[in-house]
Design a protein around this nucleic acid. Structure first.
Lengths: 238, 238
DNA sequence: TCAAAAGTGTTTGGCCTACACCCATGG
DNA sequence: CCATGGGTGTAGGCCAAACACTTTTGA
């Protein structure tokens, strides 16, 4: 690093890309913006943007998240770094290194167009492609990561509103994993894990219009899941 | 991104940093280079360097790994992206965004000085700090990640030579986790996991000079561990 | 013949799966 | 009173922790 001339090379641009996931209508959905200009004009892409000169990638990601979702308070949302994409040809215009983040949202307000007045919308995860740039890969990596982290962390509550039922929490797992779970066993597993959820005394809510009202819970202080909540092995070969 | 002037901002430098880990003398050790110039002159740091203009971060990391270790063939080594560090003040000279990688080595040759003629050496993990820049944090993150991945992946074999005994494999787990494991149970667990290791027929090796010669194994084709090999819960509270 | 390291066997308990069953509510 | 979703109970099985025991080598 010594003797490096900071202007010797063509500069690298550094951006953040966001895979913003939520569960709407029982489906995993992702926040996309429509590109107005070339390259990939008219195609959908993940929201994102450049790092400002005095900003870390995490700060930039949270700023972009607020801009793109239009939410006033974005501080409580789950945001975590996914990985960095740096293939030389990933943007045909110039060298762009992008730090990708995954954000999880509970309720899903319709997005307003971002700062650059582009169209923004939620789209079901499996109808999202093909996206601009290498965003298909980023989105797939985000899905993989979230699916894996459901097994050994408590992030599932990040998809839920402040108060939620165990049925709603189970739907998070089922939606992301694409598999059905046994309700009694899921319930026991969650309640047995210390600090995963905390009961709201006396509260209850009707979920489907019919049926017994469900008890309400809040996210607990725990972050890890020991032992993990393993997803059922798939029927076919992996 | 539209209308972005690639020279409008002070350029970002993009580097890779490597946490190169190995097990020597029964201890987890890390490859460090001594800084010759300010800032942090005389301090030890993780090896690393700038991305070349047409190089991805992964390519740069593998190039640096070859340069710093002096190994001729570095293609079979385990190298994986850790995360990206982008705090604005992490390098006092300029804005540097660094993509950190973790590399795992089996045997550990003494390193030759890197391309910039700096001193390089192996140091036990727990004697490594304090390092230059934010490298203490990067190194700790690498250790955390490797410890976690031992539970649900087969990367432990990356610390072992091509042919190894189950005792050596167990020492990898014990060294990284800092806990003792039950040998019979470890053995059963590893052999029960399809594709983790494959026996080398007829081969055996004496390990401690005394005792029964141990059968030899090679790394199998599996990458994931289902079910995981969970580390024993720590005695104190987490 | 002993120490050291590899490898096998066995018991026990816990957790997890699967499924049967009861409860509360709206139509 | 039936459909729907929430919640409890329980029998069986698999897995893994714990530990006793055998085997093979060098000294």
């Amino acid at each position: 690093m010594e003797g490096y001339d900071k202007y010797a090379f063509e500069p690298f641009a550094v951006t953040v890309d966001l895979a913003v996931l939520t569960i709407r209508e029982g489906r995993l959905q992702v926040l996309l913006i429509e590109r107005g200009q070339e390259p990939y004009a008219g195609r959908w892409a993940l929201p994102g943007g450049f790092l400002l000169p005095h900003e870390s990638a995490g700060t930039a990601a949270r700023r972009e998240l607020a801009e793109e979702t239009g939410l006033a308070d974005v501080s409580g949302l789950h945001l975590e770094q996914l990985r960095t994409y740096s293939e030389p040809d990933r943007d045909p215009r110039m060298r762009v290194v992008s730090v990708a983040y995954t954000a999880l949202l509970p309720d899903a307000p319709e997005p307003r167009g971002g700062g650059d007045a582009a169209r923004a919308r939620w789209l079901p995860y499996d109808e999202a492609g093909p996206l601009a740039f290498d965003h298909d890969r980023i989105l797939a990596d985000a899905h993989d990561r979230i699916g894996a982290k459901l097994e050994y962390t408590c992030i599932a509550t990040a998809f839920c509103p402040p108060e939620f039922t165990l049925g709603e929490l189970q739907q998070v797992y089922e939606t992301v994993w694409g598999t059905a779970l046994d309700r009694p066993n899921f319930r026991r597993k969650v309640l047995a894990t210390d600090g995963f959820v905390a009961a709201v005394p006396g509260a209850a809510r009707l979920t489907g219009g019919r049926g017994k009202p469900a008890a309400l819970y809040r996210a607990g202080p725990a972050t890890g899941l020991h032992p993990p909540l393993l997803r059922p092995p798939r029927e076919g070969r992996p």
